[in-house]
Amino acid sequence: MASNAVADPLVSRPWRVKRRIREAHDTFTLEIESRAGESFPFTAGQFNMLHVHGVGEVPISISSNPAETALIRHTTREVGPVTKAMRKLDAGDTIGVRGPMGVGWPIEAIEGRDVVLVAGGIGLAPLRPALYRLIAEREKYGKIVLLYGTRSPQDILFKHELEHWRAQFDLEIHVTVDRAIGTWRGHVGVVTTLIARAPFDPLETVALVCGPEIMMRYTLMELGRRGVRESDMYLSMERNMKCGIGTCGHCQMGPFFVCRDGPVFNYAQIKWLLGKAEV
């Protein structure tokens, strides 16, 4: 690759798929590494533009531990052409990577606070790196509570890891499903119903929220009702993204390029836009 190719932010770097892990019937994790052996530092909440040869390129959050910079993971739900093709990739295949992109979760800035993470569906993937960070320095934070809503018990992502964390660390995890099937004896209902009873001190709490936009809106409302300050709520926005670097225009939301100024925003910063339709 010519040297200018490395510098061109629109050129994908060829990485190698190390492993594909099945997470749920429609969700998989790709573990990938650089063919050039590059180390890949990133912050929790950042994403990559992943390119499947000849098919297309889509933004996918990094779902692995930021402390591990040689092997990184992306957890993806198959919804359409590109994610479908991505699921067909196997160990040894090439995947194009551009990134890391965007602004992630404010992990350092919230030291000393209680942290409530609210995830809906695949929204747990971009929050997992934040959880790794919080756990790594568990003593620096107050209560850590994960509220996670998903469609059915079969759709619960990172199940073993969640169980492990719950056992090993001082971590509250509450999972709810939209539809209970089989032997599920846990909570049923949307994730927002968990907020009212979750054990956290609202004024001490910083909330990190990721999921479908509608779920996030209700979550923020509910957190507000509990007394969490708007300036203490963070959310990760999804928009169409083609460049990831603020030059293609697709991801705009008001004055923000979600790819560059986000995807993680402080709620107080974007509240004026979130309430409006079709911005």
Binding site: E57, K242, C248, G249, H250
Partner: peptide
């Protein structure tokens, strides 16, 4: 106006992939 699409495609054989950028519109 600078908005653009980034398009990935292949030739008929599916072998040669090409990335193009094309003007797009909001």
């Amino acid at each position: 106006c600078f908005c653009a699409n980034i398009e990935d495609g292949t030739d008929l054989s599916g072998r040669l992939a090409e990335r193009r950028r094309r003007w797009d519109s909001c």
